[in-house]
Design a binder for these strands. Sequence first.
DNA 1: TGCCTTTGTTTAATCGATTAAACAAATATG
DNA 2: CATATTTGTTTAATCGATTAAACAAAGGCA
Lengths: 339, 339
Amino acid sequence: MRKKVSLKDIAERVGVSTALVSYVLNNQKTNRIGKDVAQKIRDVALELNYRINHIARSLKTKKTHTIGLLVADISNSFYSTIAKIIEDEAEKNNYTVLFGSLDENAEKSWKLIDALLNHQVDGLIIAPAADTAPQIAYLQENEVPFVLIDRYFTDIDVNSVAINNFKASYSIVDHLIQNGSTRIGIVTFATTLLNLQERTRGYSAALTSNGITSTASWIYKVTLADTKQEVEAAINAMLSLPEPVDAILFTANTLSTFGLKYINTLPLKVPDDLAIASFDESDASELFYAPITHIKQPLAKMAQHATQILLNSINNKKENVTEVLEAELVVRKSSIKKK
Amino acid sequence: MRKKVSLKDIAERVGVSTALVSYVLNNQKTNRIGKDVAQKIRDVALELNYRINHIARSLKTKKTHTIGLLVADISNSFYSTIAKIIEDEAEKNNYTVLFGSLDENAEKSWKLIDALLNHQVDGLIIAPAADTAPQIAYLQENEVPFVLIDRYFTDIDVNSVAINNFKASYSIVDHLIQNGSTRIGIVTFATTLLNLQERTRGYSAALTSNGITSTASWIYKVTLADTKQEVEAAINAMLSLPEPVDAILFTANTLSTFGLKYINTLPLKVPDDLAIASFDESDASELFYAPITHIKQPLAKMAQHATQILLNSINNKKENVTEVLEAELVVRKSSIKKK
DNA sequence: TGCCTTTGTTTAATCGATTAAACAAATATG
DNA sequence: CATATTTGTTTAATCGATTAAACAAAGGCA
């Protein structure tokens, strides 16, 4: 890279000290500085195409104006959309975003947190992987400003932004029941993540309060390692029960995407033979021959609020904020049985 | 954030100079340094949970070990997948990745390039937006190491990694013709991007060499601003020709996704009434009732090579590399007419 | 005129790590 | 034993920007 222009270069060219140049370019002490020198400094800066060296500034100010964003999986559109919004929001506030994808892996999470802290980020936004509570506790002990997004843990008082998963799940299951489904299966991940557990809890509660006895054989928990096979196995199992399910709820977009691809190959009619509902959108929602009823999370709001909470936390170190947002039930054809 | 531990802290604790600590922790001058002091330094570093201050190091070494990645649109799975691979590859080489999403916007591209350079990245990997050739030229003039990925410009000799778009397009159109299609429309973006122009060129060439006269009324170029509407309009137009097309090629996954969602609503059978083919995969490829024949780009290879080329360029400043990879034709049901 | 403000600018320390060069002590060599 | 070499460690300058404090010159006021 070509040699860089420094404050000193400008100072020498104009014939003043670097201090003065710094003041001028940062618009400080404006009432004290001579108008003509100021202008000259600005002119020369422009002429030499001066770029501030953030490294040097950061070393002195101990602020990098950089935030770290760690998401469970960046190639999931749910998170890449969040990432994009956070980046926009950060940029509006003159922050840069450093990304990392955890790949749902606690070990990788440690490494990335470590890497980001090593890079002196001012704070973190994290959609944590399962079993990373100790890492979160570590951040807390070290007083690193951070915000959890989408996912959360109990027992620790931290900044977080997420939807009311119980309520969202309850509402979509209730909707299925109101529209003709009576035996509703659920496919979710085998995980310690609370947000997903809440979804199962909401599902069960909705069944119960509609007088439906929930059965263990309606609940399938698949692993991350072998999601595709296990989703297919779960669907097969639920459909070959003595009394097969007549509806399935998928608790995540990756699950519904695999599920729909498979259901696509079965001699089944959605929604009449089998109603479908899911958390989160994906292209699947519209592409499937029966568009999918789903829970739509307020992504923009979540991402923007998380960013703002983080920036506040970086600058003012206020007490923690737990923000619970409402999700929207988007009704499409996949959940409405003809009767 | 809690007060940081510096080299000085370790030095004081052990009773040596910071120089020695630096040498030990960086494994330098190993043959000169006392074994016991070295061990003690390492112990204390661990005990105090020392983290190197990359900012300070970078200021001195003029290397940030950070690369910038700018993609046209991070929420497109094509690019988020690339992003993830590049991140992994960079991590293996002890580099960190700073991301930015251009949103196909030349102005935003300037801003992000500026931001990344201000952050002193050592180099850039860019999937450039349309009409950003001047920006690329600027990078070149300033001797910033960079690699273009997926997209490219003529007239400038730079590092780049991309597929042979002409050939890929030719092969998929040829495949359509061999499998019963005779009147093949194409939906592409109205853009100055060469990779897309090459796809149109390959399409026309394949028609010609199969003795089919290509018609202007088979070629539709839609805008980014209004993609969905225009894709739908294009499909309508092609289907209501006196002699309607019997196949459509979409030159990008965003186009095929919109297209398929729309075709899904039409009283048409794919592939018999209308064959479909597309560049790039998306969930659409499998979810659509007739899985979609498509061109599969070697993403992992592209991303890894781009990263390696960049790192070479950063470290050795070799001459430029133009890498052209072969794409794979993945045949599914959407392109094979029964007859 | 003498002293006090105000205005405009410079000095110099600092952030934390790197590293060439200097230095001192121990050991080897003739 | 004197000198050369090796071993182990420190000194001090440096990267580029920030900023409190010092300073000088000009203007204001009695």
